[in-house]
């Protein structure tokens, strides 16, 4: 028996529902109509903006010519006052990204936190918009540019919040890898296994979503 022909036969039996396709065709027609309207409106906006830019450019050129014709005061580039300004001000020192922020797995929670409470800490950090920056998702341990949406982060956060230390364990299969990057530079890598188990890098525990 040939697998290829059998697989083809199996696939031919998978057909989308006719009603669904008809509804989708209607939605596509509606979307196309509104898309065309948007394009027309955008064209007008672009033309108007272009006119304003040209008018603004003309006005600026004319105004600049008038300005240059007036007597201008002369300043020495490296004057003392300039140097003083450069030294002063409120410019904060850019410390850059420290190795500690990016390569440590255990500075994202308070040292006194119990292992059992770590999922809750992680969940609350994921949930907090002011703390959470990006959540990378991947089916392999290498992360590309796939980022979870805000809605997905909230859903994941509510699941992680339910995690407890597991008494049982299963063979770890079907992993989904996550890398949470927080605004303060903390990075937490964790993995969801079999849809219900969680492991957090740097934490020696297996959690189960109950």
């Amino acid at each position: 028996m040939n697998f290829k022909s059998k697989y083809k036969e199996y696939n031919e039996s998978i057909v989308p529902d006719g009603k669904f396709i008809n509804e989708l065709a209607d939605k596509m027609d509606c979307a196309r109509t509104s898309q065309n309207k948007k394009i027309t409106i955008n064209k007008y906006v672009i033309y108007t903006a272009a006119l304003f830019i040209i008018a603004g450019g003309l006005f600026f050129t004319l105004d600049r010519n008038n300005y240059l014709s007036e007597d201008m005061p002369i300043y020495e580039e490296s004057s003392e006052s300039n140097r003083f300004e450069l030294k002063g001000g409120n410019v904060t020192e850019d410390k850059g990204i420290t190795e500690k922020n990016y390569f440590s797995d255990n500075n994202w929670y308070n040292e006194n936190t119990e292992t059992a409470d770590l999922p809750k800490v992680l969940a609350s950090r994921l949930y907090d918009n002011t703390d959470m920056d990006k959540l990378y998702v991947s089916e392999e341990e290498v992360f590309d540019d796939m980022i979870a949406s805000e809605e997905e982060i909230k859903e994941l956060s509510s699941l992680v919040n339910l995690a407890e230390v597991a008494d049982e364990s299963e063979e770890p299969v079907s992993p989904v890898y996550y890398m949470a990057v927080f605004k303060n530079g903390d990075i937490v890598k964790f993995t969801v296994w079999n849809n219900c188990f969680i492991t957090i890098n740097g934490v020696n525990a297996l959690y189960i979503i109950k």
């Binding site: 059998k6 199996y10 998702v137 997905e152 994941l156 699941l159 989904v176 849809n195 219900c196």
Partner: peptide, 25 residues
Amino acid sequence: TSAWVRRRANIDDAENMKVDFSQKN
């Protein structure tokens, strides 16, 4: 990879299998 989908996948699969049973070899 959406967490929500993965969480509900187990429940849905069971229901879905009932619906599609006849078509699956």
